[in-house]
């Protein structure tokens, strides 16, 4: 986005922005607490031996001493509320337990795996926005053919399932043309196909929303005003209309981050890629409860951060919002 799209605040405006961040962080902590609580009680309701769930799932064979130690640590012989208290205490101290499927502490598993997932999510988000903006700026309200072509392409892109697209990309560009490696290890080449698999459907979706608001913006009198100053069509679009048009897309981006992480589960499995998605898949299939809780909490945090960022970005683009919030 060009610098003209953002309005950086100063002085009083900065203070109010800080206030807004503080409120969001506070709300985020509450959401996190709620998420942890729901996870805790949901697991209490699932059938099975809680000791075995912690110690290695249905196939584990722990010694009696280990079982006794675990019952003590988790307070499993004490009232539910105490167990809940101990659970929160462990979370706050960062002790998420040991993942038996990965044979190491949950915290270190998460630390290793979050990087690739964030990298994939971020690159997919950037590419999705880039594709959406090119399509929208290039084809909205041009000649009839170009506009229809643009919106048709967006509709098709938005309706592609991401896992299906991943398989097609894999078949064509990795196995067929051999342009990219089929297994996505480190490096840029490995990132291309998974990114496109996630980004193309999202781009179609963002473009549809942005196109509609760009059309509305282009009908506004201030656009005519800008043209009467001698601005070119492209300058009018980039400097005036675009800023109004990206607002709904920014709001949706927070939601899109959540959806991207969800879809990363499939894409990471398909491309044999490191990441939270693949770990979550393994944790769930092997009933690795500590790791499942850990991944859930991390995804919640990512989602909270993303929606806070989207909120701040929105205010930077549309400073009128700030004036309306107290």
């Amino acid at each position: 986005m060009s610098a003209g799209v953002l309005a950086f605040p100063s002085g009083d405006g900065l203070g109010r922005l800080g206030q807004r961040v503080a409120i969001r962080v506070l709300v985020g902590i509450l959401v996190l607490l709620a998420s942890a609580t729901i996870t805790f009680f949901a697991l209490k309701l699932t059938p099975g031996d809680p000791v075995r769930a912690v110690l290695g799932g249905p196939t584990a064979n722990p010694s009696p001493e280990t079982i006794a130690a675990t019952i003590r640590e988790f307070g499993l012989d004490r009232p539910l509320i105490v167990q809940y208290g101990l659970y929160l205490e462990r979370l706050v101290s960062g002790n998420l337990g040991v993942s038996f499927s990965q044979r190491q502490p949950v915290a270190s598993v998460l630390a290793q795996q979050i990087g690739p997932t964030l990298q994939l999510t971020a690159s997919a988000m950037l590419v999705a926005w880039a594709l959406a903006l090119v399509s929208v700026i290039g084809t909205t309200r041009r000649n009839r053919f170009l506009s229809a072509f643009g919106s048709g392409l967006e509709a098709v892109a938005a309706s592609l399932p991401q896992f299906w697209l991943a398989l097609v990309l894999l078949a064509v560009f990795a196995f067929g043309l051999k342009w990219f490696p089929p297994q996505s290890r480190d490096g840029f080449a490995g990132l291309v196909l998974p990114t496109l698999a996630l980004a193309i459907p999202l781009a179609g979706f963002l473009a549809q929303v942005t196109r509609e608001s760009l059309e509305l913006a282009l009908d506004q009198p201030f656009i005519l005003s800008a043209r009467t100053r001698g601005l070119s069509d492209l300058a009018v679009r980039l400097r005036h209309a675009l800023r109004h048009a990206v607002l709904p897309g920014i709001s949706l981006s927070a939601w899109a981050v959540g959806s991207l992480i969800g879809n990363a589960v499939l894409v990471e499995v398909i491309f044999s890629r490191q990441g939270l998605g693949r770990i979550l898949y393994q944790a769930v299939t092997r009933q690795d409860i500590p790791l499942t809780i850990g991944v859930t909490l991390v995804v919640t945090i990512v989602y909270i951060v993303a929606s806070t960022l989207a909120d701040l970005l929105f205010v930077l683009v549309d400073p009128r919002i700030k004036a309306a919030t107290r």
Binding site: P221, S225, V317, P319, R320
Partner: peptide, 21 residues
């Protein structure tokens, strides 16, 4: 020519000036 030789003023500056700038 626009703006340089011929200036143009529309009604209602609330919407004829970019509301975000």
């Amino acid at each position: 020519l626009r703006g340089k030789d011929i200036g143009f003023i529309l009604q209602d500056a609330l919407v004829s000036l970019d509301p975000l700038r």
